[in-house]
Computed example of a mutant assay.
Amino acid sequence: MSTDQHQRPASPTTLELLGAAGGFVRGMLRPRPVDSRLIDTITDAGLPEGGATVTVRALPQVPRSVPAGGVIEGAGMRRRVRNAMTTFVVEHPEATFLVDPSYCRDAPHRAIAELPGVLRPVVTPPADTLATVDSLAAAGVGRIPDFALPTHAHWDHVCGLLDLPGIPVHLRNTERDWILGPARPPVGGVRSALTDGRAIVAYELDGPPVATFTASHDLFGDGAVILVELAGHTPGSIGVLGRTDAGWVLLAGDAAWHYEQVDRVRQKPAFPGVFVDEDRDAAFAALHRLHLARRLVRVVPTHDHDAAAALR
């Protein structure tokens, strides 16, 4: 794939790296406090009624052990948590689709090479990480899904599409314009995974507030799959809320990297957070909404291997 200068994000400057390092140390010592005023303004709009349900499965994946403080601000570097490149399969009576087709074959050359060099060691998963297409086969999914629905368009949520040519992608208008527009995304989506003749089905969050989230989109019109506002990590980040027989599940993408962030309202550490969150304040606000929603729904961040385990 091409990695020309139009696709490559600009590398962080020395000053930006020093600022992120300083922010990382400050966050370790004194994490950003919960915004009590914001918490007090968030209301519960309720969950949709209806009888239709879906199944939500996490595909098998190879986790890696990382320091908790590398994904959760202030969590410390001695404790370890498990991180993974999870893809989810959602089965609705009308369609089967992928949420966050995360990883492609030969990703170091086809995808990770787009990233600034300083970020590559941080984000590169184990060598035996399963490509989405191989994970589908390992899980016994006997058909190609009808479409893909990324929670956002960073490389590790779309590059699995490179091995799945032809399947359409549902992408929020805001996210489509950000990732495919003339400006360079800050950490590079894989543009070729979304182009080369692939159909993009754009949508808006044109529905009312749902649970603690300010806007929504009913994907099938029956209340079984609701897309909700989680902008911050990227301009058009969304969560995928599914009604299952066991209750509501919210696939939260990278609004949080680990469930502990949701439970304790802890943002991503400054390194690499300042380079991967498009709007740190909006991302922190989204964490507050997830924190309150966790009493209503099961919240599953895409990269939290253990949170996804209950869906395998």
Results as ranks from 00 to 15, higher is better:
Ser11Arg: 11
Leu194Cys: 12
Ala202Val: 11
Ala199His: 08
Val123Glu: 00
His217Trp: 02
Val62Glu: 08
Thr87Cys: 00
Gly19Val: 15
Phe147Trp: 11
Gly22Glu: 09
Ala127Lys: 01
Lys268Phe: 10
Gly207Met: 15
Pro272Gly: 10
Asp177Ala: 13
His152Tyr: 01
Leu98Trp: 00
Asp206Cys: 10
Asp106Arg: 11
Arg143Gly: 07
Leu290Phe: 00
Ile144Trp: 04
Ser2Lys: 14
Gly221Tyr: 00
Gly27Phe: 04
Cys159Gln: 04
Asp281Ile: 08
Trp155Phe: 15
Pro208Cys: 12
Gly181Trp: 03
Ala137Pro: 05
Thr86Val: 05
Arg120Leu: 14
Val133Glu: 10
Leu227Pro: 02
Arg32Tyr: 06
His154Val: 14
Gly273Pro: 09
Pro116Thr: 09
Pro67Gln: 07
Thr53His: 05
Ala95Val: 03
Ser36Trp: 04
Tyr259His: 15
Arg57Asn: 05
Arg264Met: 11
Phe220Asn: 06
Pro126Lys: 03
Gly69Asp: 05
His154Ile: 15
Pro48Phe: 00
Ala107Pro: 03
Gly50Gln: 02
Val71Gln: 13
Ser192Phe: 02
Leu241Glu: 01
Arg264Ser: 13
Val265Asp: 14
Leu205Arg: 11
Gly160Pro: 01
Ala308Pro: 03
Pro272Val: 07
Asp254Tyr: 03
Ser135Cys: 10
Leu292Tyr: 01
Ser11Gln: 08
Glu260Asn: 15
Thr129Ala: 08
Ser102Glu: 08
Leu296Ala: 09
Leu296Ser: 12
Glu94Trp: 06
His217Arg: 09
Leu311Trp: 05
Ala211Arg: 07
Trp257Tyr: 15
Val299Ile: 14
Leu311Pro: 10
Ala255Gln: 06
Ala252Gly: 04
Arg110Leu: 05
Asp156Thr: 10
Leu136Gly: 10
Leu136His: 02
Asn173His: 14
His258Tyr: 01
Thr14Pro: 01
Asp196Gly: 14
Pro125Leu: 12
Asp196His: 07
Pro93Gln: 06
Met77Cys: 15
Ala52Met: 06
Gly160Gln: 08
Leu287Tyr: 01
Ala111His: 03
Pro63Leu: 06
Asp254Ile: 10
Gly46Asp: 07
Arg243Gly: 12
Gly160Ser: 09
Gly69Arg: 08
Ala183Trp: 02
His258Cys: 12
Val262Tyr: 00
Thr41Phe: 00
Leu219Lys: 02
Glu73Pro: 07
Arg57Asp: 04
Gly117Trp: 06
Val169Gly: 03
Arg64Val: 06
Val81Asn: 04
Asp222Met: 11
Phe147Leu: 14
Leu164Gly: 02
Gly232Trp: 00
Pro67Trp: 00
Arg289Ile: 11
Met77Arg: 10
Thr43Gln: 15
Ser2Phe: 06
Trp248Met: 09
Arg57Lys: 09
Asp281Asn: 09
Asp156Lys: 05
Val56Ile: 03
Asp106Met: 02
Met85Ser: 13
Thr174Trp: 01
Gly189Glu: 03
Val90Trp: 01
Thr302Phe: 00
Ile179Tyr: 01
Thr302Gln: 15
Gly189Cys: 13
Pro116Cys: 14
Ile72Ala: 12
Arg32Trp: 05
Gly22His: 13
Leu251Pro: 00
Thr151Ser: 09
Met28Asn: 14
His109Leu: 11
Thr86Leu: 07
Ala215Phe: 01
Thr55Ala: 11
Ala199Arg: 14
Phe147Met: 09
Ala45His: 05
Phe220Gln: 10
Leu250Val: 08
Glu91His: 06
Ser237Ile: 05
Gly27His: 06
Pro185Gly: 09
Val99Met: 09
Phe24Cys: 14
His170Trp: 07
